[in-house]
Design a binder for these strands. Sequence first.
DNA 1: CAGCTTATTGAACGACTGTTCAACAAGCTG
DNA 2: CAGCTTGTTGAACAGTCGTTCAATAAGCTG
Lengths: 201, 201
Amino acid sequence: MGLCMSKTAKFDRQKVIDKATNLYWKKGFHATSMRSLQDEIDMRPGSIYAAFGSKDGLFTEALRHYTDMALAHLTLCRSKHSSPIEALKAFVKIQVIDTKNDAPNAMCMLAKTIGELTEDNQNLIDTTKAYLGEIANQFVNLIEESQAMGEIDKDKNSNDLSNRIQIQIAGLRTFAKIDDDKNKLDAMIEDFFSHYPFKKD
Amino acid sequence: MGLCMSKTAKFDRQKVIDKATNLYWKKGFHATSMRSLQDEIDMRPGSIYAAFGSKDGLFTEALRHYTDMALAHLTLCRSKHSSPIEALKAFVKIQVIDTKNDAPNAMCMLAKTIGELTEDNQNLIDTTKAYLGEIANQFVNLIEESQAMGEIDKDKNSNDLSNRIQIQIAGLRTFAKIDDDKNKLDAMIEDFFSHYPFKKD
DNA sequence: CAGCTTATTGAACGACTGTTCAACAAGCTG
DNA sequence: CAGCTTGTTGAACAGTCGTTCAATAAGCTG
């Protein structure tokens, strides 16, 4: 028996997920209809459901893809800066400032999802929380690296600092939707990383 | 001609708006259907549309009501604290911590709306931004009062400080959906108001 | 009570929702 | 090419969406 005796030609799964992610990110879960997704990714309902199972299923893949992009950004920032704290600052600036130009939505897709969904979609919420946790874990790694280098006080709880960074990103990206003065946003991020609890008070 | 010759008995408009606000706040604009609103406020479609015009119209009234409640909370906090900065801190704690128990949603309804809606509902976004501005103005008033009393450095820009408070509220309320450790949230709020740029660094 | 005005009702509308499935197309194996 | 398996199609489904409107009910005026 051959390993594969059938039709093989398929859509580019990664490209499809990327386009779906952009639409979900821009409009949110509820405001994104399967019809508009069909147009965006140029697939018919049958193919979409065969490949992803449901609207929830495709959304879950979009959340995963979004998280992977964020983690990749973070790794890239780390490679560009010898200082882990500078890498974190650069990452925050990308998320808060650069996102205003090129991204489908100024909001973080994960934060937006946490805010939008209710217990009616508990599994999507749980997935989203888990992915936010993955990003937070990388923050913790960079913070502990920074502490080992003496940049940050070793007495500080790395998990707590990680939480504070996530809070700033969520807050700043919400604020950026109201007032997108890039200089102001940049100054606030600089301030955040150059005062308590990151620098001695 | 009499001033009013007709049926007068009506529903309690304020109570209806309050219930509608709770549902919109909990589920968001898109996930709230007119059918579920009908059940919640116990009115038939014709009455709702006669009184509020549309789903958007009722939502606009809900946003106004939410804003009025926030402003009332702020005024109450001011009356309870001789220090304007303590009043602000108390307000933030109410918004971030107490809201976990009694409110329909841990998120700020205005921030949630800003995040959820797109240019398809530009007028609702504009209204929401204006209401966030009203709250920010009251923050500015309290901050300048605080500066006049010597609590906060007069060189600091009151508008900038107001923005920073809004950013903290948005960020903390998002974070509270993931990790609702009240002690942690309380400590972060205390930290925020007792360090730069509110206290000397 | 009659007559006017206005509030309320709820069935109904067309459009849209997420999803299904029988029919069809396409590539591999033998 | 025949035969099998799998991918793709799009019409169609039952349900829900926001909204309308003719019919009815209810209170005020005269």
